[in-house]
């Protein structure tokens, strides 16, 4: 469903962020993308939602290919993805409900269907009672829940999370992580970039480790580098 084939991404100023990266994340999987800061995790995610194009190689996401997708297809791809960031990326002057509804409005969803769907996902993330509050009135963990609700409201095939717990304390981190696992349990694939090894160790999930732009470990292939045993 997400397939990197020999992907290299070079920047003019900083050089190669990814070198010959190949991996595959299957439908419905929970996968971790780990590595130190600057290992290339964020670049890999940006390639998935087509904020960047690879210098070489190909990224395929749910039927879209970086080799073929034109600019007009980018919005169509993003509506099938849910994206969550470390800094939440909420609109400060809209309430939690409006932030979530926004993701539906841009797709041209029917007005009458928006509110019920928004309230449903806000309930799922445990924020039904705070729908009318603005981001500044919410804690970090709650803001991230709004962001997750927004990412989820379009029923994405995969949820991309870039250090979603990076700004949160331990308790909020556990809550968000549990939420991501719940979402995965309902059938949505989750790809989470993190350098929190405690989280990674706490779960038996697909693990891809990047180091200086290269894949140094992929649990889907065994240590000797032979073909994957279970994709």
């Amino acid at each position: 469903m997400i397939k990197f084939t020999g992907v290299t991404k070079e920047y003019l100023k900083t050089g190669a962020a990814l070198k010959q990266v190949s991996f595959h994340i299957a439908r419905g999987q929970f996968a971790f993308l780990t590595g130190h800061s600057g290992a290339g995790k964020t670049t890999a995610l940006r390639l998935i939602y087509l904020a960047e194009r690879p210098t070489a190689g190909e990224v395929r996401v749910s039927g879209f290919s970086t080799a073929r997708a034109g600019p007009r297809e980018i919005p169509r791809l993003r509506r099938r993805l849910g994206i969550v960031f470390q800094d939440f990326q909420l609109l400060e002057d809209r309430t939690a409900e409006e932030n979530v509804a926004f993701a539906l409005e841009v797709t041209g969803a029917r007005h009458t269907t928006i509110r019920p769907r928004v309230m449903r996902v806000l309930t799922q993330v445990g924020l039904a009672g705070k729908a009318n509050q603005y981001p500044r009135e919410l804690s970090g963990g709650e803001q991230q829940r709004v962001a997750i609700a927004r990412a989820r409201v379009n029923d994405p095939v995969v949820l991309l999370a870039d250090e979603p717990t990076g700004n949160l304390d331990e308790r909020a981190t556990r809550g968000i992580f549990q939420l991501l696992k719940d979402i995965n349990a309902s059938g949505t694939a989750v790809l989470m970039a993190t350098h929190d090894l405690d989280l990674v160790r706490s779960m038996d999930a697909h693990l891809i480790e990047l180091q200086q732009g290269e894949v140094v470990y992929d649990s889907a292939e065994d240590a000797a580098g032979r073909q994957p045993v279970a994709p």
């Binding site: 919005p75 169509r76 791809l77 993003r78 509506r79 990326q89 609109l91 926004f102 993701a103 841009v106």
Partner: peptide, 15 residues
């Protein structure tokens, strides 16, 4: 910033 977020959730340039 708002425009960037709109794009992330799949808004077309026309929208």
């Amino acid at each position: 910033r708002e425009i960037a977020i709109m794009r992330l959730v799949g808004a077309t340039d026309g929208f």
